[in-house]
Write a protein that binds this DNA or RNA. Structure first.
Lengths: 204, 204, 204, 204
DNA sequence: AATGAATGAGCATTCATTCAT
DNA sequence: TATGAATGAATGCTCATTCAT
């Protein structure tokens, strides 16, 4: 790589680094105090920069929250799609999705808090959330269930969208409980517990 | 009853009425704009009283939110316990719980919004929530599942607490989706859909 | 007057008093530091009230400035019209207008400063100014000149509007100089000086 | 001349050019948005340079405004003196001064706006203005009137300083009106209108 | 008990100025 | 010289809460 390439590349990296730093700081601060109770100054201090600098990278406090969500969701969905593409059977796919869900959030407690708690703090966000990446995520689950029904692996008397919501809701609750729990325990293994019920039901 | 007819009793009733009015107003306003974006003045206007009057019945804005939750949860649990007491079989009990859950929230959209969205808007509330009525609610479900296992109706290789969370999470998700949905549809019937999966699983 | 009248009247008076106090404080502060360099807190302190109270009477800092101008201009024009109505001859009328102009501003140095200096501080205000009371004022002068021409008192080879601007400009400059002058001298007498030239010219 | 062609001379020219460019940019921006609403960044962008570069040529935003005034006034007075030196009769001199006044400002609307509107936006500037070039300008008019009185061309019962202010005020008002007018018309011809009144008065 | 005017702490955002490169 | 990213002081406005009536 020539010098001008690396030079520009470096500049970009620096810019990305600071954006990244602000985002990381925001996640931490939001997780700790909640979005509305967090001051932009808190984020700046956590990121080790001046207050005004935040506004060189984000238009407003709200945009920071939106960015936290967008970036994480995008990354999550991209990785999910990649992994799933290689799995054929619907039930195994579902298992992988559930595992990924809990692995990802279980690996970053602050991010998980922001996702579970803060993003729901306002109907506005919920609606954007609903219309954005979240809907896409739910759709992936739904489609997988549909394919499983077609393949004869899953019961056909269930509406795929409802089944998808049930699975999502169950996983979501695992995360919420994990966040609020005083005990420290690994989140990812809960995926298999959820699937045990989701696949086989609780009836004897 | 004499007392409730008495002068003092009447005064108490009036007091209760105004508290009630403020609470109803708060639910409406919180549902519309979110807790942090709601002004105490909004609530007062909605309740048809002066701003200052709010503080004769509640110590702070936060206490209003807490009260909204406490009162609803208390009422919900009381009614739940009453209904369940009369049901013997664990699976039928669970069905009734699920139905009640969705019936109650499905009957009061504003309250549902506050429960699903606003109460999670801050970790603080979530924690109190977790330690308060919510934990009790989860415990009722859990115990029912345990009894079902003892009675041989439910599989024994599932941790009751986890199964309880799964059921709760699934129901919770139904409510959230119902709130955010642009379509109007009855929420209560979703209980049976959830139970179909929860009881029988999705595998063929 | 009955009690309920005086009671309400008193309430109104109190409200008007506070509005008035804020306006007076604003004139003083604006005159001293200029509009842009004045803090709302300065005005509040000068008025002896809390910062927030300002916003119970005015929507914004800008509205205060607008109100200062509106109120003064309105009062000025009303009084001007009243006085002039009783004067028949155009030249005497013009003399009274000129005197009033300098008397009014000469009686309230702070108000004069705001008028001469601050209201021109922004093109925006100038335009509103131009379209508002100011245009009306100029028109009164213009019409008087026109009537004088018709009556054969004034030369007919002058455009009334131009002559009006010349008179206004000359008076205005007297005020500006008076404000900026380190010497203290009465402003009103300058009116006659201006008219000596305006009426007779400087040529021998 | 050698020096101006030399390397150093060229460097100076470049420096002057950039200063000049900033000044021109500032006049445009100030005229458009007003001094207080103009950002240094706006000026830099208009001048086609980086924000920081402005500070290599001016100490502060305020100094830019001062420089706008100083340079224009200096140039104006110099040219005025040159032209007047060749005119003997006081009345003709006064006419030339009035024409120059309106020609100059009428030729550069942005500069005129800054002069008429922005420079008065603060008492501070007004005072400096008063003590600086402006006083000198007024003195030139005053002296010319005095000479006219001595020569028997002008009435002797007028204080020259007052007469000078009257002329200045009238001309100034012509400029202000021209700036605020929606119609486009040439400003310079107004000089003769003003003089018609100033010399002959409006009485028949 | 009820009112609503008054309070004043609190905060997102802007922007003139600096300085490392 | 020139750059433009970074700084951080500064402030208009909001709103939960109080309190005199």
């Amino acid at each position: 790589m020539l010098r001008s390439d690396s030079f520009i590349g470096q500049a970009r990296a620096v810019v990305a680094d600071k954006r990244e730093a602000i985002l990381r700081a925001a996640i931490k601060v939001f997780a700790q105090k909640g979005y509305f109770n967090s001051k932009v100054a808190d984020i700046a201090k956590e990121a080790g920069i001046a207050d005004g600098t935040v506004y060189l990278y984000f238009k407003s406090k709200e945009e920071i929250l939106r960015s936290v969500f967008d970036r994480a969701m995008e990354e999550f969905i991209a990785e999910g799609k990649r992994e799933i593409a290689e799995i054929r059977e619907a039930d195994k796919r579902l298992r992988r999705i559930a595992q990924l869900h809990l692995e990802k959030l279980g690996a970053d407690r602050d991010l998980a808090i922001v996702f579970q708690v803060e993003l729901r703090g306002s109907t506005k966000f919920m609606e954007e959330f609903s219309g954005g990446g979240f809907a896409e995520y739910l759709e992936i689950i739904q489609r997988t269930i549909q394919e499983g029904q077609k393949a004869g692996v899953f019961r056909k008397d269930l509406k795929p969208i409802t089944a998808a919501k049930i699975l999502y809701g169950a996983l979501d609750e695992m995360v919420t409980n994990w966040i609020l729990s005083k005990r420290e325990y690994p989140l990812a293994p809960m995926a298999d517990e959820v699937l045990k019920v989701f696949f086989g039901g609780i009836l004897k």
